[in-house]
Amino acid sequence: MRIVNPTFGLAAAGGPKVDLKPVNWATDAIALVSNSKPNARELLAGIREKLGAFRPIDNIEFLAKNSASQPAPKDVIEKVAANFRGALLAIAD
């Protein structure tokens, strides 16, 4: 007997492959992106403060999704891409 696989599908076409530029985490501008869940911002603020012992932090900025339940808006993603070399995301809790 032959059955149809209920999980079968075709892989969606992916976006173009992006070559990442190297990041100097000791000096480069860094975005700290919160998923807007409670304590995400506080976690990132604590990390930023600790990084101050090793590097300048005036070019480390906070960004956040509008809502914990929705994807990051396009403008936030574009802002990260345009203004920062690295991003630290607090998203998985």
Binding site: V4, N5, P6, F8, G9, L10, A12
Partner: peptide
């Protein structure tokens, strides 16, 4: 459309297989 989170495009047959099951 690709179905998130897995991001695959189902066939009408695989959709139907779930309805049969």
């Amino acid at each position: 459309a690709p179905v998130p989170p897995r991001q695959i495009v189902p066939t009408v047959q695989s959709v139907a297989a779930n309805a049969v099951m």
